[in-house]
Nucleic acid binder design. Structure first.
Lengths: 128, 128, 128, 128
DNA sequence: GTGGTCTAGACCACT
DNA sequence: GTGGTCTAGACCACG
C-alpha cells in the first residue's frame, strides 16, 4: 500500500504523512480504519520503526489519526474534514505558485488547460 | 534591492536565487548587468559571505550568471531563456499540485478564479 | 453500568477504576455490594479479561474493593473513606493546576464561575 | 534554566515543552529570544539530543517557537497568544476536574480558598 | 556552530 | 501483539 522513495529529498516520514492523507482523501482509508502497525510497516518498507512512529505521531497531532496504546492507530472521524480545511486554507500558496509561472511567461490559457486536465484526471480516477 | 527573511524556512541562499531570477524575469536585471559583489551583499544583508557565494555558485551552475575572476558576476546572455525553459519544463509539477487541490474537494471554478487573479496581479505589477 | 471509550487515550483499566470510584462516591455502589465478575464484564464491554483484572487488582491494592477467592469482588467497608481521603490529600495538585490557568491570564472570576457551575451540576445530578 | 525530573512519569520532552511555555508566560522568555541549542541543552541536562529535538519540534508545530536551520530556535511572535488561547479553550477540562473534587465531598469553600491562594501566589511571584 | 533526519536497539505501558 | 519514550551515534543541509 505505502510506497516510499528513499532517494527523494522529502523526508520519509513526510512521504508517509502525504500518502496517508491521500489515501484518506481518495477513500482508500476511511474513518475508523486501522492503519498498519508501526512494526509491520517498518518491516514491509524496510524503514526504521522510529521513522514510522514519527509520521504517525504527526498525523496524531494533526488529529487525522488517533493512536491508542496496545491497540493500534485508526483514522479519526474528523480526518477528512481536517484535511479538506487545511487545503482550503492554503489556497494563497497556490496563487503564489501560479503567479511565478505567470511571471515566467507561461500564458494564461496554458495554465487553465492544465487546471482542466488535472480535474479531468481526478474524475477518471474516481470512475475506476 | 535584495530582501531576505532570516526567519523563513526556505534557506537564505534559495531566497537569493529566487529573487535574482525574478529580477531577471521582470527586467530589473538584464543580460550583462553586474550583480552586487559577494562582500557588499554580505554586508548590506548582514548575511554570511559563504551563503551569498553558495547562491551565486548555483546560479553560475545553471548558467544564469557567469562569474569572472577578479571582475564580478554578470547576468548571462542566455539567462532569460534558461529561466523560462526551466519553468515551462516544470508544468507537470503544477498539474500535480492542482490535482491535489482538486482531490481535496476545492472546486474547478475556485482554482480558475485564482489563476485569473494571479495574472491580474502580475499585470498590475508590470504597469507600475 | 460501566462504559468504556476504547478510543480514549486514558487506559481502559484506569477508566474502569475511575468509574468504580465514581459509582461508590455517588452511592450507586455501596459497601458490601458485589462487582460484576471479570469474565462477565469482559464480555459485556468486549474488553480483554486481563484489562479488567488489572483494574480490579489496583482497586484491591487501594483497599477500595476486596476480592474473595471463588466468590467475587466486593466494595470494601472503608471504600468511601479511602476515596475521600485520597482526594482531600490531592488538593495540592488542584492548586497547581489552577495556578497554571492563572499564569495563562485566565482571570480569578472566570475560575470561580467554573467552580460554582461545577457544584451546580453535581447538585442537579444528585437530585435526579 | 530548564530542570527535568528523570523519574517523573511525564516524558522528558513534555516537561521541556511545559517549562518552555511557562518561561514564555512568565516573561522569562520573550518573542524573538533564542532558546538554548539542541546540543547545549542536551549536554547541560544530560539528555539525548533527540529528546530535546522532539520537544523543540512539537513547540515548532504549535508555532510557539520557530526553528531555523543553521541559526537556532527562537520564540515566535505569536507565542504568548497561542499559549493563552490554548489554555482558554481548555477551561472545560478544569470544570471536569473540579467536579470530581466536588463529588468527593470537598466543599465549595475549600475549593474557592484554593483558587484565591493560587492567585495570591502568582501575584507574589510577579512582584519579585 | 546550528537544526533535521534516520538507524539500531532498548525498555515501558497497555491489550 | 500494540504504541510511546529514550539513548547512542551517524550523516546531511545551512550559516
Amino acid at each position: 500500500m505505502f510506497q516510499i522513495d528513499a532517494m527523494s529529498r522529502t523526508p520519509i516520514y513526510e512521504q508517509l504523512i502525504e500518502q496517508t492523507e491521500k489515501f484518506i482523501m481518495s477513500g482508500v482509508l476511511r474513518s475508523g480504519d486501522q492503519l498498519p502497525s508501526v512494526r509491520s510497516l517498518s518491516i514491509s518498507l524496510s524503514v526504521n520503526p522510529n521513522t514510522i512512529q514519527k509520521a504517525y505521531n504527526e498525523l496524531d497531532i494533526k488529529k487525522i489519526i488517533t493512536s491508542v496504546q496496545g491497540k493500534g492507530c485508526f483514522v479519526s472521524p474528523e480526518a477528512l474534514d481536517i484535511i479538506y480545511k487545511a487545503r482550503a486554507a492554503n489556497l494563497g500558496a497556490l496563487k503564489k505558485t501560479i503567479a511565478e509561472y505567470a511571471l515566467a511567461g507561461i500564458d494564461r490559457q496554458s495554465i487553465i488547460d492544465i487546471v482542466e486536465s488535472a480535474y479531468e484526471s481526478i474524475k477518471q480516477e474516481r470512475n475506476k
